[in-house]
Amino acid sequence: MNDSSQGLAEAGGEGVEAALDKSPLYLRIRDVLADAISRGRLPKGALLLEGPVATLFASTRTPVRQALALLEEGGMVRRFDGRGFLVGQGRTGPKRVTLTADMLGLDEEAPALRKAPGWEAIYESLEREMVHLSVFGRYRINEVELARARGVGRQVARDALMRLEALGIVEKDERMRWTLVPLDEQRMRDLHAIRVALEPVALLQAAPFIPPADRKAMTERLEEALAVYPALSVEAMDDLETDLHITCLGYCPNRELLIALRRAHFMLNVSKHVIGVSHRMPEDEPFIAEHLAVFRALDVEDFARAAETLRHHIVVSLPKVIGRVAELRGVHRPDMPAYATPVARAGEPA
């Protein structure tokens, strides 16, 4: 058990609740699971699968995957010859128990995720709304009106906007006013050019450090998704994108390279909010087979081929994204939120 998990295990309810107050989602999930394990609510050998855990926390699988990896590092769960993780150490076989909110202490009396930062409650829908709106031009965003529209305090609205700013979805103008950055074709090409140049380099450096078991699990998810497409949720598609472009690349030891890629990965959010939400699922799956080709090369440790396959995947994805955004622009007219005001083009009256 690592220091943070040990601290939670020994803390009372107030200690856990305080620790959960401001930490990232994957850390809060880890801490709730660690507390449940230490208190015996999750028995030794209990099987933990990403999907059921994510359902209980009303999250995607990505933060659950990160939480389970941290618990494995701390010795609280272990892998076995099967999918998922088992609680505790030793040779105990899997116990297929039905996870419940009570087992994880997620009832009203127990410390759970209710202390999540306020911006998380509005962020996902706000990001989608902003991405859709950005397709139609540049808009000024009124922080006060945004807070009023979402029924939150101004600080919560500001926190959400700051996260959008980190992705390059919004920015501040010369008068420090929030502005929605337009998503035009040139911007998409510029962002893709960064990804084409940097992602293969990041993968080449990351490849030796990706745990084989994690790589195998990602490959299995792709194979399962390919078999059932298009019967996939938007969340499942986003998880598959995250596996390759975020999780795998995250093992790159060059942190400055990953920071340089952060804004360019905004394009992943564009696809997430267009495919299956405001745009029909493509008849042909958009990227699963291409991702599988990258993982096949990683499996045989042909890292150069994996990097080149990734580069090709990014190159061929650009026309698809441009086409989807163009179609969205042609057939969709979003409701104009009260907090957004169009910004006139150069030469037009403000």
Results as ranks from 00 to 15, higher is better:
E241N: 00
A54D: 08
T309I: 10
S5F: 04
P253E: 13
M281V: 15
E290I: 03
F136A: 02
M218D: 08
T60L: 05
E127S: 04
L268Q: 05
A67G: 02
K115M: 12
D173K: 12
T55E: 15
H291I: 01
R78Y: 09
D243T: 03
E73M: 02
T179N: 04
G323R: 14
R140Y: 01
K216D: 15
A264M: 04
V234E: 11
D159S: 11
A11N: 06
A9K: 10
V144E: 14
G82M: 07
S278D: 08
E108L: 14
P334Y: 03
T92I: 14
A338F: 05
A34Y: 09
V274I: 14
A101Y: 05
R333A: 06
E235Q: 14
I122G: 02
R262G: 12
V228A: 12
A116W: 00
D190W: 06
Y251V: 05
E17R: 06
R305L: 02
M103E: 06
R154T: 08
S4E: 11
G15N: 05
E127R: 00
V316Y: 11
D31S: 15
Q205G: 13
E120R: 11
H332P: 01
G153K: 01
A11M: 10
L68K: 06
I210V: 15
A67C: 03
M76I: 03
R263M: 15
V87S: 05
L49E: 11
L33K: 01
G7F: 08
M1E: 06
F295M: 10
N254R: 14
P342A: 15
